[in-house]
Every structure is written in C-alpha cells, then in structure tokens.
Design a binder for these strands. Structure first.
Lengths: 206, 206
DNA sequence: CCCTTTCGATACACGGACGTATTGAGTACG
DNA sequence: CGTACTCAATACGTCCGTGTATCGAAAGGG
C-alpha cells in the first residue's frame, strides 16, 4: 500500500527534485496553477520533461509536494520568530502582534499559489483532507507558543481552539486586502489592529 | 476609444450571452479557471465556439463579465436581506449577526471561482483595479445599512471604514474554513462568534 | 416583401502539451 | 575495475484547444 519512504535517497535525484520544486513556485505564481505546464517548470529548472516524469507522476503530485514543503518551512519560520521573542518582558497584546506579525510573511507569490491550491482542494476531497490536516498541524505547532506569549502579556485564553481559528481567518482575510493594496499603509495598519482586537476579544486578563 | 455601449441589444445576442455566462460558473467551479476551455463552456451552454467568439473576445473577458454580474447580484441580495430586517426592534449585536449572515451565502462554487479570480487579479494590474473598485462598491452599498442596523442595536461606529475592512476580512477568512469543514457545526458557530466579536470591538455603546 | 445586417455554425490550419518508450550517461557497489 | 542499476534526455505519436475565415439563416428596417 503505502511504501515506507526510502531513507537512502540518491544524491542526484534529491537534487533534481529540489530544483524542480523550487522552479515550480514562480511558475505557478506567474501563470496560475491551471495554466502552468510541465515544460515551463522544467525549462526554468534547467531540465527536460524526462526529468520531471521520473520524479513526479503528475503536476498535481508536484503541487502537493511543494505545498507541504512550503508550509513546513512556514511553521519553522514562525517558530523561530517566537523564539527570538524570548528576551522581551511583559509585553502587551499590541506589542505581541507588532513583533510576531512580521514573521508571518505576506508573500505575494505564495499567496496566489495557496489561493489556487485552496480552490483546487475544495474540488478534491483527498486534497481537502490534506489541507485541513496541514492547517491543524500549523495551529497545533503555533498555539502553545502563542499561549505562552500571551501569558507573559498577562492574558489567559479560555478557548485556544477558537482563538486559533479566528487568527487563521484573520490572517487569510487580511492578507488579500494587503496584497490588493500593497501601497496603502492604512490597510496594513488595520490588519494589525484587527489582530489586536481579535486577540483581546478571545483572551481575558489574569 | 471606448465605444458607447449600444443600448439596443438584439434579442438573440443577449440571450446567448446570458446562457454562456450562466454555463461558465459551473465549468470554472469544476475545472478551475485555468483549466477551463471555451469548448467546455459552449458545450454546457448548448452552443458552438462560434457563438462564443462572436460574444466575447476571450475567456478572460467572459470571466470578468461573469464576476461583475455575480457581485452585482450579491449586493442586491444582501440589500434585500437588510430590508427584510426592518420589523425587528432593538436587536443586539448577536441578533444582527445571526439574522444578516445567512443572507451572505457561503457558496461553494462561487467561492472557488472568486478565489481564483483573486489570484488572477493579483497577477494582472488591470483586473486588480477592477476588483478593488468592486469591493469598494460593495462596502459602500452595505455599510450605510450596517450603520443603521447597529444604531438600532444601540451601537455607534467610530470608524466605519475600518469596520468595513474588518468585516470583509472576517467574511473571506471564515468562508474558507466553513467550506473546508462544511459538516462541522462548530466551525460555523465560531464564524458567527468572530463576527460578533469584531463588530463589538469596532463599535461602542451609545 | 425584399434587402441589409447580424449572429451562430462549420471548416480549417496551427501550435503546443501530454505521457511513454527508448537510449545513453553517470553512479554505486561488489 | 567492471557490472548492474538509476535517472535524465530524446524521440515519438497523439490529442486537444485555439482563433480565424467563411457560409447560411434568422431578424429587423424601409
């Protein structure tokens, strides 16, 4: 059924995979997932289609692999940002937001890709499960850190899951707005405000 | 330059256009915009590609036309829901949310399409302007109604624009979650809660 | 009632993307 | 050092979608 992942991955293959995955993001971002072709990705990565098909069964498979790689990277990035927060003492909610938010990048290219992935996943039950699982993993990885940080800010969280969902929604919803009007600082400011309001509403002073 | 829109639209053509636009939504929803073809749309609408090309210059053009039609329809639908609210007296914030929210449908197909439209628009400056303009129109149409309703609930809005942006973000962000887990009533409940919290945070008692 | 105009169907030529089967080069391993 | 294997390149046949140009039929105007 599910093959145990080979733990001895040949040097050559690993490199090719990596390059293809790397090349895929910009292609998807520029062309849109639906309009992207295997050839475009191979061209950008400096390979031929032969290389592609010996690494992935289909564009969908690469798409999924890329998604998983990126979200894992995102988790570690945010975790790092949290860790870097350690020295600060007794921040308030706004300070937490102002400090942590830059660590969650609003990346134009990545946003476009994940928007399309979302649409794609809504269409495909298998992918949908993968995606919700991934989101849960992100929440589970980040919420404990969030709890601790907020505790330091003197706030307790009655329902961490609800806060998690609210934060994800806030992130998703405001990201679009910021990307649509990237040069309008007000929009970015309101994004931070919304985070503050949401966190405040879902926590209480201890 | 810009041709003045012919105000005498032939019977036949108007019908064909309508049918094509109608057929386009399900095709985009099922296949994804990028993977949709002119032929699929024509087939579903019961026409040949000839009909398509004598009504639209490209798929993009149809896409945009469809988007404008749908968002206009959405505005009138919500406005109707607001109007139907008149009889209620002195609601609280939660009552407003519980009552108005069902009027803003979380439509699976439409959501997928607009997610892809968003991604597409982020890639195309022209479309981006169209989209922000459309969003502003929606906000402008709905906020006055919102203001009035909340006034009846005894709440004033210091910064209506900020509230508008926050509500749009809330809508966008929570819609995904609901569509991803359509059978989880908790997610829907938390969506309503978030609306309540946001509105409460952005208004004050009079 | 005819004549003009408009619209949608058909036919055509073209390009491009797909997936596979085969080949040759590079790599690991005995 | 040589053999066996792995992986990427090439070549191939195929299918599908595009956009245009042409033609026939309906609608509308005088």
């Amino acid at each position: 059924m599910i093959e145990p992942t080979a733990d001895r991955v040949p040097r050559r293959r690993a490199e090719t995979r990596r390059r293809l995955l790397e090349a895929a993001l910009p292609v998807f971002a520029e062309e849109g997932f639906g309009r992207s072709t295997v050839e475009q990705i191979c061209e950008r990565a400096g390979y031929t289609r032969g290389a592609f098909y010996s690494n992935f069964a289909s564009l969908d498979e690469l798409f999924l692999a890329m998604w998983e790689g990126r979200s894992a990277a995102m988790i570690t990035a945010v975790r790092a940002a949290f860790d870097a927060f350690t020295p600060v003492e007794l921040p308030d909610v706004r300070a937490v937001v102002e400090r942590v938010l830059p660590a969650i990048p609003v990346d134009d290219a990545w946003f476009r890709v994940s928007a399309e992935f979302t649409a794609h996943a809504l269409r495909n039950p298998g992918l949908r499960r993968v995606m919700t699982a991934r989101e849960e993993a992100i929440a589970e990885a980040l919420m404990p850190l969030m709890v601790e940080l907020l505790a330091r800010a003197g706030r307790s969280i009655p329902d961490p899951v609800a806060l998690g969902q609210a934060l994800v929604a806030t992130h998703d919803g405001t990201s679009v707005q910021c990307l649509m009007a990237p040069d309008n600082p007000l929009v970015w400011q309101r994004r931070r405000d919304l985070y503050v309001q949401v966190i405040t509403a879902y926590t209480e002073e201890t």
